[in-house]
Amino acid sequence: SAVVMEEGSPGEVPVLVEPPGLEDVEAALGMDRRTDAYSRSSSVSSQEEKSLHAEELVGRGIPIERVVSSEGGRPSVDLSFQPSQPLSKSSSSPELQTLQDILGDPGDKADVGRLSPEVKARSQSGTLDGESAAWSASGEDSRGQPEGPLPSSSPRSPSGLRPRGYTISDSAPSRRGKRVERDALKSRATASNAEKVPGINPSFVFLQLYHSPFFGDESNKPILLPNESQSFERSVQLLDQIPSYDTHKIAVLYVGEGQSNSELAILSNEHGSYRYTEFLTGLGRLIELKDCQPDKVYLGGLDVCGEDGQFTYCWHDDIMQAVFHIATLMPTKDVDKHRCDKKRHLGNDFVSIVYNDSGEDFKLGTIKGQFNFVHVIVTPLDYECNLVSLQCRKDMEGLVDTSVAKIVSDRNLPFVARQMALHANMASQVHHSRSNPTDIYPSKWIARLRHIKRLRQRICEEAAYSNPSLPLVHPPSHSKAPAQTPAEPTPGYEVGQRKRLISSVEDFTEFV
């Protein structure tokens, strides 16, 4: 048969007729292969192709491409040299491709048809291009793949890379869960390890502090508590009631339409708007009261037996805890006409967050109470924005700035309102402590230090009264110190430094 060459192609190359033996071998191979691939376009007849790359030819070592076609129900084999250009295909004639002069020997084609199974398996396991790669995943090629499931790999992101949580363990979102698992493993320790309690022994800490320079003076030496005195035992138990972190309780009120001037209507609300609910979820963490331990979680007086509701929101960081007394989460009882059960919590909070959804101005004093010092007013606006402002009593104007209003988005509203309420509550605590000038409020841990110092002074006084020969370590507060001759004046800087060093040991009130 003659071949018409394309323009620009090399000279004529004689194409030899395939021997009958080659056709029989390739026909047997075509019957084993699956003929249901995917359909081509209507211009080209339905056909199945599979590209198999052999590394070497037997005796020649030339890479070839073998295409199996099922045109007219008769499979045909096409061998081509890759750099050459194939002729145009037609549905009426068999596929013809040019070969190099080196394939002119018909014996070479017979060798190609009689490829060993080793070469076929190696060509099938190679990388296939384009559409033949999808075909190689079918059941027909499963014989050339190794048996057994593939090893499982770690989760992959859409980009093909490992997620960040699997790369950096410290930033993994499941870090707290692993800590819980470690605690569970520790709890399952053997009885021999049960006595080993991690941490620092208080006796060891005391020993280090006792021999430090801070205890060089007799006034700073630790003293032993009497065991037989019940009054001192009660004082030590009272110390446990003062937490070592700051605590805040903040009221949250929802004002519906037409309720801006009605205290009873505001306290009777059992739910609010959708934006109000989203605002609550951002204030803190939802907790169930019956599962809380009052000595570990500050509840601000809420009952854990269901008297004040089942849930509330709280927030904490390293040095403070805040609980929100939310009116809509507290039960509304029919027998309580004046809502006294709610007001006994909300009316005693220094700061209230008022979500004013009424469309009218909310005035300070609508919720009557002796300790309502500051109101954080949240007014929802259009386009997911809110107006946040402050209202306070006249005696609080020096501590709280009420002249600045803020426009905040719904997303950042819980954070801004919480921070403003916490700052206002700190100012309210300082303002409330002014009624007792001898006990200015600095912080909870300073209050613990003052309680310890008062307890020490009482013990020293009782020891001096029981044994008059012992001198008083600290003179009583009601006694007057003996007159001392004025010492020589020293520079102001040295006096300030000495006073600062003494105050650092005794108390921190002056620095606050």
Rank of each mutant, 00 (worst) to 15 (best):
K221M: 15
P226W: 12
Q230P: 11
Q230C: 12
F232S: 07
S235K: 07
S235F: 14
L238V: 06
P243D: 15
D246H: 06
T247I: 09
Y254R: 01
V255G: 00
V255P: 00
E257Y: 13
S260A: 13
I266C: 04
I266Q: 03
I266M: 03
I266T: 03
L267W: 05
L267R: 04
S268H: 05
G272L: 01
Y274I: 08
Y274H: 07
E278M: 09
F279V: 00
L280K: 01
L283S: 00
L283F: 02
E288W: 13
D295L: 05
K296F: 05
V297D: 15
L299Q: 15
V304W: 08
Y313C: 08
C314S: 07
D317H: 02
D317T: 03
D317E: 13
Q321C: 12
H325N: 04
A327T: 04
T332M: 07
T332D: 07
K333D: 10
D336P: 08
D336Q: 10
R339M: 15
C340Q: 15
C340G: 14
D341I: 09
D341S: 13
R344K: 12
L346P: 04
G347N: 15
D349V: 08
D349N: 06
D349K: 04
F350R: 03
S352M: 10
D357V: 01
S358L: 01
K363P: 12
L364N: 12
G365S: 13
T366H: 04
T366M: 05
Q370A: 15
V374P: 01
H375Q: 15
P380Y: 00
D382R: 02
D382K: 02
V388A: 01
M396C: 13
M396L: 14
E397H: 13
G398R: 13
A405M: 14
V408D: 00
S409E: 03
D410Y: 00
R411W: 05
R411E: 12
L413G: 01
R418L: 04
Q419N: 10
Q419M: 15
A424K: 01
A427E: 01
Q429C: 09
H432P: 03
H432W: 15
S433A: 14
R434I: 10
D439Q: 08
D439P: 07
I440C: 10
S443R: 09
K444S: 07
A447S: 09
R450E: 13
H451R: 08
R458V: 15
E461A: 09
A463N: 13
A464H: 08
A464S: 09
S466Q: 10
S469H: 14
P471H: 07
P471M: 08
H478M: 14
S479W: 11
P482K: 08
Q484V: 13
Q484N: 12
P486M: 12
E488D: 12
P489T: 11
T490I: 12
E494S: 08
I502P: 14
S504K: 12
S504R: 12
V505N: 14
